[in-house]
Write a protein that binds this DNA or RNA. Structure first.
Lengths: 255, 255
DNA sequence: CGTACCCTTGAAAAAAATCAACTTAAGTGG
DNA sequence: CCACTTAAGTTGATTTTTTTCAAGGGTACG
């Protein structure tokens, strides 16, 4: 995958990039890096990452820990997401960022990205949208944790991750290949691993999903969405040219 | 309160505003409006507010509802917060915004604010920081809902709101005058009103807080923070020149 | 002085966590 | 290639937390 093309597509999916912005983009020094599973990219309380990474492959999570050792995953980042837009203009990190799988990322110097964001309207706009969509997802997760029961939460997060993965061309429709352990799924949904297990089996028993190892297949999308109280509006996919039902990627010509 | 001064202070608290930005700010047409309790400022699924409001007085909440009628408050906005930075670059609202008390707000045209954010580095930077801090608060709330028990959640949100209120000069130290019903407190913490009541009495019984009507006084700040697993780093107050312990406001001369 | 709207309290039910095996799967090194 | 080891998944029994249900009590406001 051509990195410049991905960046331009990502930043340009909300509107055309003028020549000056494209030139500025092409001139950013970026480096493609491999990141091993478990690597701490940002540490809570420390400085933000010196480089802001665009995820090319693999999965990263943002997480926080409580005083008594609990862990809450507060975001999942996949292909096309910028790691650490969350700290772009802050001097102290307020959460951890960690590679959940082996990753490939394109690194851009943080300060250079700041300057780009402020100097080029279209790039600024694109980064704004990424940040605002991420905040919107956090609000939906708040609703998920605060007001939905365990089974609904699990169905919801499966629905969301499947759609997001499809929308960036990661998995075939209705398949979820995130290699999450049930403990990690618990850290996303605020449940214990034991209870996650029971809810997964409940969804499987009812014919909504099938499982093989850690890969999940959605057998009845409408039913799963209903079980998860899932309405994808909050992902703002339509505004990015993506079909919010199927996750079909943006037509590059559009706009 | 002079509105222009408040806006300039808000936007300038992260760094000096150059003359051009100040001039641009002075030239924004804004209107001060009274907003009645219960007014729906933004409706989920509809268009974002045509005007972006800066809160001068009163309290607004962001909330979402679930399919079975549950309600989750996902953010609380007080003096100095911009309503609807969350939708500044989005075309569809993903949550509701509602006046919880009578409010006074300064309205700025949404599209004009966009242009300002993109054309003036310092204004853009200030709005970025506001958005990023709000996202940071959402992540902390996620941790609160996902991994802390009921009593801890209540202690945490009281600690947070007291500090935020102090930091904008809303209440004397260690007093919380947000006129929340226990039901609304439940909508913030993902609990039932009955359980909120029990937890409040527990905190009161243990001498951490005192209550009179709906006003809460913090009797033992350190103990309340401990009970709420509260560490204010995530509010990024220090980066705004505010003392993260006491909430003392920024010294205007600084930076 | 009534009438909402909250707050408070107790008892019972439900949901989820905890505890404690046991099973399966996936390496790893002999 | 197999035995061994470790991490993760599964299951049942029990305990804890929180919700639900229901009934009073207080208070502000027309």
């Amino acid at each position: 995958m051509d990195v410049h093309a991905l960046i331009a597509a990502k930043l340009g999916s909300y509107g055309p990039l003028p020549e000056a912005a494209q030139r500025a983009l092409r001139e950013i020094p970026f480096t493609v890096r491999e990141v091993a599973t478990g690597t701490q990219i940002v540490r809570d309380g420390g400085p933000p990452a010196r480089e802001c990474s665009l995820v090319l492959d693999g999965v990263a999570i943002r997480h926080k820990t409580t005083g008594d050792g609990g862990r809450q995953i507060v975001a999942v980042e996949i292909r096309g997401d910028f790691l650490d837009v969350a700290h772009l203009f802050l001097d102290v990190a307020d959460h951890n960022v960690e590679a959940l799988t082996p990753m490939r990322v394109a690194n851009v110097d943080r300060l250079k990205l700041r300057v780009l964001a402020l100097d080029h309207r279209e790039i600024g706009r694109a980064l704004w949208i990424q940040a605002l969509v991420e905040a919107s997802i956090a609000r939906e997760w708040l609703t998920n944790l605060g007001r939905r029961d365990a089974r609904t939460r699990i169905a919801h997060i499966i629905s969301e991750m499947a759609l997001r993965a499809e929308s960036v061309g990661l998995s075939p429709p209705d398949t979820l290949n995130l290699p999450w352990t049930q403990e990690q799924l618990g850290d996303v949904t605020g449940l214990t691993p034991v209870h996650v297990n029971r809810m997964l089996r409940s969804l499987e028993h009812d014919g909504l999903i099938a499982r093989e190892g850690r890969s999940i297949t959605i057998l009845d999308r409408a039913a799963l969405h209903a079980a998860g109280d899932f309405a994808p509006l909050y992902l703002h996919l339509a505004e990015q040219g993506i079909d919010p039902e199927t996750g079909d990627p943006p037509r590059q010509a559009a706009r």
